[in-house]
């Protein structure tokens, strides 16, 4: 069963390390709210991007002026895709 993980706090929360330690191949991580700041640092994400698909929520990037600063290999998605991803993966685990 594949899992969509959402992370909604900034890198200082250390949520990514905990989430990353529980990822399995085929899972995905979606960055939302302050979690989008993870995507301005591609080094932090390089450890997991080979294993899982990365997504980041467009609205939260836009709000924070970070739309052009998505340096990671994360696909920018809107709310429609957020819902679709929740359907595509077997369950959703939220990190907040």
């Amino acid at each position: 069963m594949t899992i969509l993980h959402t992370i909604s706090r900034s890198p200082s929360s250390a949520l990514l390390a905990s989430c990353a330690s529980l990822l399995a191949s085929g899972d995905a991580v979606l960055f939302i709210e302050d979690g989008i700041y993870h995507c301005s640092d591609n080094k932090a994400l390089s450890a997991i991007e080979a294993l899982v698909k990365l997504y980041v929520l467009r609205e939260d990037l836009m709000a924070r002026g970070m739309l052009g600063k998505n340096l990671a290999d994360a696909e920018i998605v809107g709310y429609d895709a957020f819902v679709e991803l929740c359907c595509e993966y077997d369950k959703v685990v939220s990190w907040f």
Binding site: M1, S21, L22, K91, V93
Partner: peptide, 18 residues
């Protein structure tokens, strides 16, 4: 260990994480 927790959440129907 973490791999056991990974397996546990994968086989669960629903996960609450707080």
């Amino acid at each position: 260990n973490r791999s056991l927790i990974t397996a546990l959440i994968r086989q669960s129907d629903c996960v609450f994480n707080l």
